[in-house]
Amino acid sequence: MHSEARPPLALTLGAVLGLLFLHLPILLIFLYAFTTEDRSYQFPPPDLTTKWFGVAWNRADIWPPLYLSLRVAAISSGLALVLGTLCAAAMARARFFGRDTISLLVVLPIALPGIITGMSLRSAFAIADIPFSTWTIVLGHATFCVVIVYNNAVARFRRLGASMLEASADLGANSFQTFRHVILPNLGSALLAGGMLAFALSFDEVIVTTFTAGQQSTLPIWMLNELVRPRQRPVTNVVAIVVFSATFLPILAAYYLTRSGEETAGGGK
């Protein structure tokens, strides 16, 4: 641990092995999508085939969960965008009583294990006699997505500074013009990044969802059922690749959108 620029060999080795540990397992998902063996996880695969992509495409039980997941993710990230931005705007405006309580309240749904959020909602639905629907799923997802948008927006608001908004008012803009011409363009990329991360988070969520979905099936719930009771295992891999891409690509995009700022998207998950 001396000041030389070259790290000790053991440290480099530990860091590289650690990163490989984080990344290599995912590759197997891709490999197993091409195996000809569909009754076990035999390694190495006896032979390779691309037929499972076609099989997956024609499996009627995959499409409704996919649609439901897309719908829930779209509505939830939309709601989270509105709520998270409003919250960040209020917090950026003033130091007011209860600020710390509110920031705790925003973080809590993601800081506490999903099972607590899920079981809480389940208890509330039971007490209030609310039947399961798309909206019960959305209720949970939007709640834990707010913090993602909030974290992205609040960092950008901080960078925007008060004087920019004052300058706009000073030059004759009313509050709405300031929002449209100054706040929105400067917040845009942060909101887009936050929205995409929220989408990814919602699309992939399974723990809270199992408590709020009832008999409905989102794509992750479909996958979970396949994991517990497998049939045509490579098809599950094909779906896993789809789910992986649907979360991976927004994250990468969000990273590039906010890279220039000191606060990079994603630190808050």
């Binding site: 990344h23 995912i26 998902i29 992939d204 896993a240 990079t264």
Partner: peptide
């Protein structure tokens, strides 16, 4: 690279990650 190397696994699908390990640890697995 390090940042992305940590951030991507953090955000990528939880269920897919768990599934990957099911493949790795299976009796007949890698």
């Amino acid at each position: 690279l390090f940042y992305l190397g940590v951030m991507l696994p953090l955000w990528s699908s939880y269920l897919v990650k768990v599934y990957a390990w099911k493949l790795i640890l299976a009796k007949e697995g890698i």
